[in-house]
């Protein structure tokens, strides 16, 4: 008991004694302020649950998600062994939902890695270096922005071949331009500030300034933007699936499940609604998490 209390006191100190101590203390205090945000914690728990479901899918799923029993099609909620009913091919919806969480995580994870990092890189370099680098990079960004997202993604998938990986790649490639614009706008205001001049006077090169001084200031708004965009990304993946260019038919991707169930929405509403609710919940969880992260990542805003 007293040991954990000591640890708490050590982590909560105002006057850390070493660099490592300061880092742990800052992380712990960030966690505390995150934890006091109930909504963000709800978001976090939902996502942890999603990861758990994805990992333990074979153990959790009551049926094989691909097993078709045509005689058993479009069963209602809670009908003999199918808690969430069955779809038009008689497959268990709950099992498909559980396996589908793997695909959702895969999409979300990959897009969340590729798009913001590309955007951050392009935006900060353009904003900091300026001149013709800026012009060239921003023209490219504008070209990407000029096309509707889905149309561009379609073109990419058509070129790369159908499939979930290529769909993810296509979505990422179309998602980065807004991040680049945002990062550039922030870089432009940061670039002219005195603290950047001050580090230039210590002989720091542009690489160091961009990665160590500009990125930390752009990242928090970027993370928030990305979590808020997640819903759209999941839906875009579903849209590609619907057009036959994303997840291929038997795969239990949530978006594809909705478009399949759409045909029966009047008679068997649950077939489309259940995966829709799943997408809604996960998107909401990302939004809540994003809001909470903003408070933690921005010590200045949190204090003021």
């Amino acid at each position: 008991m007293s040991e954990t209390q000591n640890l708490r006191a050590w982590l909560l100190t105002d006057t850390p004694t070493s660099r490592r101590h300061a880092k742990y203390a800052a992380a712990y205090q960030g966690w505390l302020s995150f934890r006091s945000n109930t909504m963000a914690m709800i978001g976090l728990w939902i996502l942890i649950f999603l990861v758990f479901v994805a990992v333990a899918a074979p153990l959790l799923a009551p049926h094989d998600p691909f097993e078709q029993t045509l005689s058993n099609r479009l069963q209602g909620l809670n009908s003999d062994g199918h808690i969430l009913g069955t779809d038009s091919l008689g497959r268990d919806i709950l099992s498909r939902l559980i396996y589908g969480s793997r695909i959702t995580l895969f999409i979300v994870g990959l897009v969340a890695l590729i798009a913001p990092i590309t955007g951050l890189l392009v935006g900060t370099v353009a904003g900091y270096v300026g001149g013709w680098t800026d012009t060239v990079l921003m023209r490219i960004t504008d070209i990407f922005l000029a096309f509707p997202r889905l149309v561009l993604a379609l073109a990419f998938v058509a070129a790369l071949g159908a499939g979930i990986e290529n769909a993810v790649l296509a979505i990422s490639l179309t998602a980065w331009p807004p991040y680049a614009r945002m990062a550039r706008a922030e870089t432009l205001t940061i670039r002219s500030s005195d603290y950047i001049s001050a580090i230039q006077l210590q002989g720091a090169g542009p690489m160091r300034i961009i990665t160590k001084h500009i990125w930390p200031l752009c990242i928090s708004s970027l993370i928030v933007r990305v979590t808020l965009d997640m819903a759209g990304i999941i839906l875009a993946a579903a849209g590609l699936g619907f057009l036959g260019l994303g997840a291929q038919p038997p795969s239990p991707e949530w978006g594809a499940m909705i478009s399949e169930g759409r045909r029966f929405i009047l008679d068997s509403w649950w077939v489309a609604t259940v995966p829709g609710l799943a997408i809604f919940t996960v998107s909401l969880a990302f939004n809540l998490l994003g809001d909470g992260l903003r408070d933690v990542l921005d010590p200045k805003d949190a204090e003021k």
Partner: peptide, 22 residues
């Protein structure tokens, strides 16, 4: 050089230790 505005011349996300250490 020391700048005019002490509110603008320190990086908002860097601790004193980071500023001097770097």
């Amino acid at each position: 050089m020391v700048f005019q505005d002490p509110y603008a011349s320190l990086h908002p996300r860097h601790s004193v230790d980071q500023v001097l250490g770097e």
